[in-house]
Nucleic acid binder design. Structure first.
Lengths: 335, 335
DNA sequence: GTGAAAGCGCTAACAG
DNA sequence: CTGTTAGCGCTTTCAC
């Protein structure tokens, strides 16, 4: 890991016949330098192949131009879309992102938080794993590191800046749509109740059913891992019921895609005999056949808003915790 | 961006009544410290809430425990799978990854390379955008920064460590499979010839056809952007030919999924009237209906091998450039 | 085993 | 406008 030593500002200054301080001002684009010396120094930099050492600069100035982004997994298109939003927004402000993936393991998350601290990132955007308490995160804030929570909540939501979608409303929209289509027995498939997101979507499901005057059959609620396999298993389970459902609301699109496979295996025509609504609106949702009706959770926007909030906080412009709750939208397609 | 000042090693040492140097040895887990002082110092760290400053440490020791990973876009499942591989492997070695996405823009790629340099990353893994010359990359090596190229080649492949799949062979496997199925008119759809990957897959396509004694009809080669939309457009184009193809090999799975949509729109039964082979074996390939026959490009393994090569090089253990070319495998499914 | 002093490459504060 | 001096938080000799 030893590196060939690089050209330092000192050497550049010497070569150009100025002081280190002057050279420093020039790299940073100061206006208050005469055109001639500026040219001269820039020329020297070019000749010597100077590369700015941002690490050393950050150390000295006690600033940080990095931001940590902690996410459960990159394989899920929803999260990768959030990442794209974060990336774009932070790029624009000149930050560099350090990525960490927890794979939903608490030990990994703790380790990542420490890493972010050790690297002196200027702030952290995190989608905490289910069961993360606010104490776990508070550690960062106590050390003066701004934090923004995205997509999932911690045990004490009001403590931090948060950006997410209104999952209760999303669940409601989905169910109302299915009720309008004439369904009475609607399953809720996939996900597990340890996640705040699941609980909210489930609540939307319940609320909408109750408001419409229908009863909730616990047999139609199936918890599974958030995967296509999970969806496939879940639909098989409810189809074998004495009174199978005629429609399903899925925890997210990934699960919904699994459910679609399961329905096809069972020879059920999606969109005709059976209606299906997902959540997230990942790209794939519009591409499958039949295309998937889903609730758009605006992952890209979540990433951008989270970045904006973090930037505000890093500039010291924010006061109390802010919450940005996006209104989800139902995207009606063929399913 | 100003940070509340943190507890320094100095303060810890003072609190514990030892010197800074001793404390430093202890954070790094040195063996040559008496158990008592060690305990005492560790206790002080806990009490004061000390956080190791890896940035300062790296500056002083001229080491780096970060690795840059530059990729075109994170939205493509193939790349996100490579990222997962990279992440897992580097994690194990204790590196932290700094992520950059180029969106296939040359300016962005150049900027990212500079950023990596400025952040003194210990090494870089890059999937260069089409048209990247070896000079663009050489800059890094000249500054003593190890580089590993992954998935795509530069203009002068032999100069750097490289990990990728044998795209020529992959193309051949696909075409041989289609020929065995009895097809004579096989289209090659999607992608553009500015990419080395495209040219190799195309070559495999050509070679296989020629070996089998068939001729190549240029009308069956359609270049498009690498997207579902591209696939859709491409299949529509060839279907309107006087002599449409009866099978297609697609640049990758993303394109293939678009082609599937297009075929369905045209009322063509995939797997019966028309056979289709993709490339990459992204998760989705096994989940669509009908499931997609494809060539597995082992993205996860590419990420891991690239990380291993980089690690070797960072340790100074590598000599000449190494090339790891993975053998792709045909995954026969329903399409 | 532990401490004192020097310095990684840069910026900040103040002179001039 | 430019130079001087000090020091960010850590590691690294080299004494003792």
């Amino acid at each position: 890991m030893k590196k060939r030593s690089r050209v330092t500002l000192q050497q550049v200054a010497q070569h150009a016949g100025v002081s280190r301080a002057t050279a420093s001002l020039i790299v940073r684009g100061s206006e208050s330098i005469s055109k001639e010396t500026k040219e001269k120094v820039l020329q020297s930099m070019k000749e010597l192949g100077y590369v700015y050492d941002r690490i050393a600069a950050n150390l000295r100035s006690q600033h940080s131009s990095t931001v940590g982004f902690i996410i459960s997994e990159i394989g899920n298109p929803f999260f990768s879309e959030v990442l794209v939003g974060v990336h774009k927004a932070l790029d624009k402000e000149g930050y560099t992102v350090i990525l960490g993936t927890t794979f939903d393991l608490m030990a990994k998350q703790q380790a990542l938080l420490s890493t972010m601290l050790e690297y002196r990132v200027g702030g952290v955007i995190i989608s905490p794993i289910p069961g993360t308490s606010h104490e776990d995160i508070e550690r960062l804030e106590q050390l003066g590191m701004p934090v923004v929570i995205a997509t999932r909540e911690t045990t004490f939501p009001e403590k931090f800046d948060y950006v997410g979608v209104d999952n209760v409303l999303g669940g409601k929209l989905a169910i109302q749509h299915l009720i309008e289509k004439g369904h009475r027995r609607i399953a809720f498939l996939g996900g597990t109740n340890d996640s705040s997101v699941w609980r909210d979507r489930m609540r939307g499901y319940m609320d909408a059913l109750v408001e419409a005057g229908f009863e909730v059959d616990p047999a139609l609620l199936v918890e599974t891992p958030v995967s296509r396999k999970g969806g496939m298993d879940a639909i098989k389970q409810v189809l074998s019921l004495p009174q199978p459902p005629t429609a399903a609301f899925c925890y997210n699109d990934i699960v919904a895609l699994g459910v679609m496979s399961g329905l096809k295996d069972a020879g059920i025509h999606i969109g005709q005999e059976f209606n299906l609504v997902g959540f997230d609106n990942i790209q794939e949702a519009s591409m499958v056949t039949p295309s998937l009706t889903t609730v758009d959770a605006f992952p890209h926007a979540i990433g951008e808003y989270a970045s904006d909030l973090l930037h505000q906080r890093m500039m010291g412009l924010s006061e109390g915790p802010k919450r940005i709750i996006l209104k989800p939208e139902l995207i009606v397609r063929e399913s």
